[in-house]
Design a protein around this nucleic acid. Sequence first.
DNA 1: TTGTCATATCATGATATTATGATATGTTAA
DNA 2: TTAACATATCATAATATCATGATATGACAA
Lengths: 126, 126
Amino acid sequence: MEMKENNLENKDEGLCDVFNSHEDAVERVKGRMPAEEEYAELSEFFKIFGNPTRLKIISLLTVEDLCVCDICEALDLNQTTVSNQLRILRANNIVKFQKEGKMARYSLTDLHIEMIYKVGLEHILE
Amino acid sequence: MEMKENNLENKDEGLCDVFNSHEDAVERVKGRMPAEEEYAELSEFFKIFGNPTRLKIISLLTVEDLCVCDICEALDLNQTTVSNQLRILRANNIVKFQKEGKMARYSLTDLHIEMIYKVGLEHILE
DNA sequence: TTGTCATATCATGATATTATGATATGTTAA
DNA sequence: TTAACATATCATAATATCATGATATGACAA
């Protein structure tokens, strides 16, 4: 792999073939990349927000904590669906819950979740 | 559907059967829900973050703008894969690009994208 | 100790998404 | 005008995800 070093600052122009693209830019950005595993974990985390049912559950819980049954009713969904999605949300550390008798009261894990939800909503509303 | 109105503030306890769950809480959260269509759009938006390749591309672009070829090299991915993911990112208003001769220089659409990425990263790192 | 209810898990068919090979487009230089 | 290159699109097989029916668990009341 031949090199074409270019130490002038901000020299972003240049040939862009596979063996000799903007070497300096490539090196800079590569140097700031998190580990492979963190991308995997982070994409799993964001994937959870990528389903309307889960997003609705998150949305409800930004308003107040709710039991499974309330979520079913508010969203007009059957219990299996809600329970399954809550399991996924739990497994990904997006919601937590406390048992109260035979009920389970769910809430968001922390403020990150609310922030992400709200910034996303802001974005799509332009 | 029989009602059991309960106007005492914060009265969250009560029966939780399908026909008479915590009516007041359910009404409160339903009243604050965005439209169905917004959930659909928002989940499509977040879905984009739910793939490690796209997340890596976003991650690179938080550091600096790059052409397709640089992204291929930084991520060691073939051009088809990168180009396809860039199309998805474009279609979802997450990146924009400007043509410079035969090159296309990509950048993030706005600060929302960087915020979401960074809050997510912060979350998974606890 | 049986019944009812709130919730959780399992199994599955329908559907969506992935990466990539093949190919097309459009720009620049020879 | 042809060649080389940067990028985009199309088609597809492998894989992942969805909602849900069937069923299990565990708490409380009768």
